[in-house]
Each structure stands twice: as C-alpha cells, then as structure tokens.
Design a protein around this nucleic acid. Structure first.
Lengths: 342, 342
DNA sequence: TTGTAGGCGTTATCAG
DNA sequence: CTGATAACGCCTACAA
C-alpha cells in the first residue's frame, strides 16, 4: 500500500527501458552504458526508489532470508547464540526471527513459515525432546524445507537429520561431577529441569554417571522448568526437606541463578550452607557473586558455526555433526578449591 | 529454488481452476463449494504445498513483516524489549531482526532494507545520538518508509518524528541522586557512557542536577562505552585516582556490573569500599549479589507498547509520545538504607 | 549495449 | 459458486 515507486517509474523518468533500469539497479555489473547508468541512478534517487525485495525474490526464485528459531530470545543462552549467528548472516542476507516460547508446535509452524518465505536457510536452536511424534513431524517438515532447496542446521541434539552442532552435555556434566567430588563435596542434589528435554536429561545422566564412578550418588533429583523460576522453585522445594545436600547441580546457569536466589531468600549462604553449580557459562552471568561454577560452552562459536554451515558454498555430501565440548570452570559458588566439608 | 510445489500444481491435481484453488488456500472464506474445497485441501496436503509468501506479498501489495532494529540482541536490555515486542507481533506476522552493533549507518541501512521488504511496520530501539547529520538522514529515510505505507515506532528519544516510547532518563537519574544523598552518600562519581548518546547524556545531566539540588556535585565524570567492558574500564581508571568517590553512578546496569567487577578485581568491596548504582533494572541481573541499586524501567511494557503502536488498527492523527518513568530501587550495592559514611 | 516480451506464483476483477 | 485473465513488480533470455 502507499505510494510505491516502482522500477517502471524510474525507467520512465530516466527515459530508458525497464530492462535497462533493472540492470543498473540490481546486480548485472558493467553491461550498461555510463550515460544511461547515471540517468537511471539519478532518477532512482530523485524518486526515492527502493527495490521491492518480494518481487525480486519471486522473479529470481530465491531470497536471501535466513530464518533463526529459538525458544526465547530473552534467555541469555539463546541471545548470545543469536547474536553470533546474526553476525555471520548479516553480510549475506536478512534474518527472520522466530521464538517458540518453548512450545514444540511453534517449531513446526516456523519451519513451514520459513518455507513459505522461501528462506534460503534455517538455523534452529534448542533442545530436542522425548516426544517422538513431534520429532518425526518436525523431521518431515524439515525434509520438505530441504527438498524445496533450503539448508538447515540445528544446535542441539542430532535428531532431525540435519547438520548439527552438538554440545557434549553428558561428558561435560560427568566432568563436572568428578571435579566437584575432587573439590571435597560429599552429598549431592540435582535440579534436573524438565524430564522431556534431552539436554536436561543428558546433563542429569552424565552427572549421575560421573558421581557413581567416584562412589557417590545424587540424594535428590528434582524436575522443574528449564528457567530461572524453575531453578528457584525446585531449590525452594529442596530446602524444605529434612536433609539437604551439600552440593547442588542445576542443569543450566539460569536455573542455578534462581537456585542461588532461593538459598539467599532463606537466609542461607552460597557456598557456605550449600554449594551450587550450573552449566553453560553464560557471559552475562560471569560477573555475579558468588561467581558460578559451571561447564563452559563456546556459545558464540556454536552460533557462528551453525550459521556458517547453512551459508557455506559447497553443499556437503552428507550431514555434518560438529561436537563441541564443555569445559569445567570451578569458581566461588562451590567453595574453596581444595578441601571442604559438605 | 528446488522443487517448488505451486498453486497451479495443486489446482491441476484437484481438477479446479487456479482461482478456486487460491480462494480455498488463502482467506476468502465460504465462497467455495464444500466439494471443491475438500478436493483442493486434499491435493495441497498430498503435494506438500506451502504458499509462497513473496508471491502473495507481491500480488496483495502488502506483507505481514514487522521489522525490529536493535543495537545488540545479546545485550539483556534489548533482548528483553525484543522478546516483549516479539510476543505482540507474532500473532500478526513475522519478525525481521536487524542488529546495528551500535553503528549508526547500520540503522540507516536497515530502514531501507525494511522498506525493500515492504515491512508493514518497524520498531527501532536505541538511543539517539548527538550526530545531527545522521539523525536528519535517518529521519528522511523513515519519512520515506512512512510515505510508502509503513508504520514506525521508536524506543528512545523523540528525534525522528515518529511514535515514540520515551524513557524519562533525566527524571529517573535525578530521583536516584536524591535517594543516594538521602542514603547518606557524600561524594560521587559518574561512569557516564559515550558523550554522543542522548540516553547517556540525559542520565548524566539528571544525576548532576539531582545532586546539585542537594548541594552536592560529581567529583569525577568518566566517559566510556555503554557496555559491560566500558563500565569495567572506566571504573578501573577511576580507581587509579588518588581520591575515590564513595558512590559511583553507572548510567546503565551492564556498565554497573562491569564496574562492580573492576572493584572486586582490585580486592575492594561493594558497597563497603565504594557504592555503585546503575540504571534500567535488567531482570537477568536482579539476582546478582550485591543486588544492584538502580532505576527500574518497565522494559517489557516498553517493548509491548512500541509494537502495539505500530500494529493497532486506527491510524492516529498525529504522532504519539508515551513517556515511561523510572522508579528508583535501592538495594545492597549502595549499602544499608539509612546512615552511611562514604 | 539496449529493448521486447515472457515468466515468477498469487491475488483479484469480471464475466459466466 | 466457478473460471478466465489481467495485474503485482521485477528478472532475464532473446532478439535487435
């Protein structure tokens, strides 16, 4: 709507054909005479012409839109990844953002939307779930997207038959368990997140595994949302119990932050009364006190890599899985490095 | 590219005309016979048809894309606003995201891009600057966007002739100064951010104004980036000085976090050795210790309001300015509520 | 180098 | 209610 200035207007004003105007305004270098070129440019400027990207996309049969689907752009985990992906996409095209608010059916909807938009590529971020039916439907939708010419990369688990950036959640959590035992912690609890999230499940499993190899076990495992409030609530519940573990692992950093808040609100101290560890090493949280013991994931690299995979020229012959490993970072929230009661 | 299934394919498969197929696949309710309707739907499903949004946009002469331009999606200030805006946009259309990484010329580029994309609306968030030339060019670009039928809302200063959500930076900072004086603080410093950012400038001015009304002044004013690192660096520089103020105001929360880190890294304590206050009250930071004294801005509301303004039905007769005020929140980073040396 | 004309996938206007 | 057919704004052989 409104007073769209079209290429035809520009051509007329410049006294040239539509084709010539098209050639100078878009790609096709050096095929148009300097005289005409200038006339067209001048006319375009005077008229305030801007090419209609839709029409171009229709005519060309492709677009430069890259879709990015994340559960929640407000969550620093995802916003860091998004920023990194954005940085590599920006020179090549526009970024269309979708947020699912953790609703799986929204993932499905966005894949369809991106196809409708002829997105050249799609990056999906977020844990896969145990819902096999949904995973299958999503796989199918993605297959259609790919069939229609799109590229897809996923950050999360390798369940959709796509290029994947795969954080080593199990191994990272296992290493964390080992480190905590070595730090001197004796009794453990886990704020395990949702049962249905593979990321949460893998971290729980890895942690439990790591403990058992050192002859320990998790005395309490509580499930809740994968969010700050989920961590707060689960920790509050844990603190209600008669016996409380000396060390609690929250399966991601934002849950850990919520857990710390819950501890504080009861007048207790971290790490003196209870030690708390997280997972992800979110940059925004690196300055908080007590500094958070966690497993560092190279979030920026992950975002960059996913974006690069869908954008690089050569179509790989088969799907690529890039495993990224987490590095344990011991900080203040689990107490002094050496001994420890607990 | 790829094996696009078109509406023509669907029509042929269903044995109906293109027009009929179009009618059932898109809007136009109840004008097509149940028999044909079913046949078309079936054919579409079998073929895996998805409408080409570009072609639709071209044919309809409008699109449902809403543009959102922010300086940095990783910054929690903007990601909170973005999430809120996203929530109101999502039911109506798709969201195209642009990040400027604080480069003004990128703002200009995105306005043009959004016009090319026929975006129906555009939300720009971020402080205006003192660069009059850029502001003028941006205004012109926006005027063209509006002339071609788009709606625009800005979160920041009212400099672009658009609907605006305008945080009361001066008043908030002034109130903060008053509160800090009443808390007993005697000497002050300001980490003032970039000189060219109006938001930073207004907060500095308001703070200084508030101090002077209580017979105080800012002993030190340091300029730096509007980021965590900017806060860290400026605070480090401040701590080099012979005399250090008892209370430091960082003009936004992320700078305050950086400042706190700088204080800690020198083995000093907040608030015992130096009190620190911020501005914005970023949700992610509410759980950090020491909890941050700040000026709360209703970030979610701001995002929602801006999005609503560009989406609501009735075109307002003139541009609207919505002022949102900040509320001082005294927490631990500036010490105990009552007395105080400093 | 330039112009002509057909086509991209949809929608929308008109007759039937 | 249905079906031709002309737009929509642009790109791109193909011909001049």
């Amino acid at each position: 709507m409104g007073s769209q200035v079209t290429l035809a207007d520009v051509a007329e004003r410049a006294g040239v054909s539509l084709a010539t105007a098209s050639r100078v305004v878009n790609g096709s270098e050096r095929v148009v005479g300097a005289r005409f070129r200038e006339r067209v440019l001048a006319a375009a400027a005077e008229l305030g012409y801007t090419a209609n990207a839709f029409a171009q996309a229709v005519a060309r049969g492709r677009s430069d839109v890259v879709g990015l689907v994340v559960p929640d752009i407000q969550d620093p985990y995802f916003s860091v990844i998004a920023a990194a992906a954005m940085a590599v996409v920006e020179p090549h095209g526009e970024m269309m953002l979708g947020t699912t608010l953790h609703r799986p059916e929204q993932e499905l909807r966005y894949v369809t939307t991106m196809r409708a938009r002829q997105a050249q590529a799609l990056v999906m971020v977020g844990s896969r779930t145990t819902d096999a039916a949904h995973t299958r439907r999503l796989s199918e939708a993605i297959a259609e997207f790919v069939a229609s010419g799109g590229r897809v990369a996923v950050i999360g688990q390798d369940r959709l038959g796509t290029d994947t950036v795969l954080p080593q959640n199990r191994a990272g959590a296992k290493d964390l368990a080992t480190a905590l035992v070595e730090q001197g912690h004796k009794t453990f609890g886990v704020l395990a997140g949702p049962k249905t999230l593979l990321t949460a499940r893998d971290r729980l499993d890895g942690f439990v595994d790591g403990l058992s190899r050192r002859g320990k076990r998790a005395a309490v495992v509580l499930h809740s949302d994968f969010t700050r409030d989920g961590g707060y609530q689960a920790m509050s519940e844990l603190l209600e119990r008669r016996t409380r573990p000396g060390c609690v692992f929250a399966v991601n950093d934002v849950m850990a932050i919520g857990a710390i808040a819950a501890v504080r609100d009861r007048g207790l101290s971290v790490p003196d009364d209870v030690a708390i560890a997280g997972f992800d090493d979110i940059p925004t949280l690196r300055d908080v006190a007590p500094s958070l013991t966690t497993v560092r994931l190279p979030l920026q690299d992950m975002g960059r890599m996913a974006a690069s995979m869908v954008l690089d020229e050569q179509q790989p012959d088969r799907k690529r899985i890039v495993r990224v490993k987490g590095e344990v970072v011991i900080r203040d929230s689990t107490g002094p490095s050496r001994p420890g009661s607990s």
